[in-house]
């Protein structure tokens, strides 16, 4: 097929067409949102899968994403080799926790499986992830509050990464919070960490902003704040919470740091570590000059 002849004016217009189409797509097309955006997933459980020595009076908890909604989905607790029954959970919307208080005390040494459901989400038709969690009951009820001396350090950085919901770069101040050793008669692995920002822009009362399962020993907890919350002097504190709701007396231990607005002064670190290209060129030139002087001298000597 022979292409139709075009006027000279049509050529530049044709060249601009892909650009115009791209611009139109950017302006009017649907925003590219990843499938993961806003998924009401189950994030973690307390106790975790494989836990042992779970107190006989433990409240079993599963933490879901902030978009999750509990609409009466069934939670099943299996007493392995004995029975299996649906249990009534309570959904703590604020912390995203689905909490089950077993109808009877757990039998010491027995194995249990709790089947956490897939939940639906606000504004999304996708179901989130579920989990079957297997654990073994310990010998005793939880009798004491967790031992935790609070935060031990705080370090900060700025992170810019592409957000799966907005499909654009989001800047966040990232804080690595060092944690003092922790223990509990119900097991360290079943502790929950509640983190507060105690000072910072707009903070009038300690603000809980992260509820997480306690990280592995020696690992810091990484939390994020927006620029709005994190410029200047910012302080944090944390308490450990066990499976019956007792908390450590660590809320009085604050750790503070001072952040600054980007861009940061990093003049020295911006310098390359190895020899600079300029220095390399100078070395080569000096070598060439030395060689040429040597040759002249040898010629003169002849």
């Amino acid at each position: 097929m022979t292409p139709a002849p075009r006027s000279p004016r049509a050529a530049p217009l044709r060249a601009l067409a892909p650009l115009a189409a791209a611009a139109a797509l950017c302006a009017f097309g649907p925003s590219a949102r990843a499938d993961e955006c806003g998924r009401p997933d189950l994030l973690e459980t307390m106790p975790p899968d494989g836990a042992t020595d779970v107190p006989t009076d433990a409240r079993l908890q599963a933490r879901y994403a902030a978009t999750a909604e509990y609409l009466g989905e069934e939670v099943v607790l299996e007493h392995v080799g004995v029975d299996e029954r649906a249990v009534d959970p309570i959904f703590d919307v604020n912390e995203g926790l689905l909490v089950v208080s077993p109808p009877e005390a757990l039998v010491p040494g027995d194995e249990y499986v709790i089947r956490w459901p897939r939940l639906r989400g606000l504004g999304t038709a996708t179901l989130g992830r579920s989990a079957d969690v297997r654990f073994v009951a310990g010998a005793l009820a939880d009798a004491t509050a967790p031992e935790f001396a609070g935060l031990s350090s705080v370090e900060w950085d700025l992170d810019r990464s592409r957000d799966e919901c907005t499909d654009s770069l989001q800047a966040r101040y990232v804080f690595d919070l060092g944690l003092s050793p922790a223990s509990d008669d119900g097991g360290r692995g079943s502790l929950t960490l509640v983190v507060f920002q105690t000072r910072g822009p707009g903070i009038t009362a300690p603000e809980p902003f992260a509820v997480r399962r306690f990280p592995a020993p020696g690992k810091p907890l990484r939390v994020e704040r927006t620029e709005r919350d994190a410029i200047g002097e910012v302080c944090f504190a944390a308490v450990a919470r066990d499976l019956v709701g007792r908390t450590s007396a660590s809320g009085s231990v604050e750790r503070c740091t001072r952040t600054v607005r980007p861009p940061f002064f990093e003049g020295c670190s911006a310098a390359p570590r190895g020899p600079r290209p300029g220095a390399l060129v100078s070395l080569v030139l000096a070598g060439v000059a030395a060689l040429s002087v040597g040759r002249r001298r040898s010629r003169a000597a002849r």
């Binding site: 902030a66 309570i90 959904f91 703590d92 919307v93 604020n94 912390e95 995203g96 926790l97 509640v194 507060f196 105690t198 009362a205 300690p206 603000e207 809980p208 509820v211 302080c235 504190a237 308490v239 709701g245 908390t247 809320g251 009085s252 604050e254």
Partner: peptide, 18 residues
């Protein structure tokens, strides 16, 4: 709605938010 206020840094914390 869930969660609790704790004594933190000598003050009662705010309630957690979703």
């Amino acid at each position: 709605g869930g969660g609790a206020r704790y004594c933190v840094a000598g003050r009662l914390s705010e309630c957690p938010k979703r």
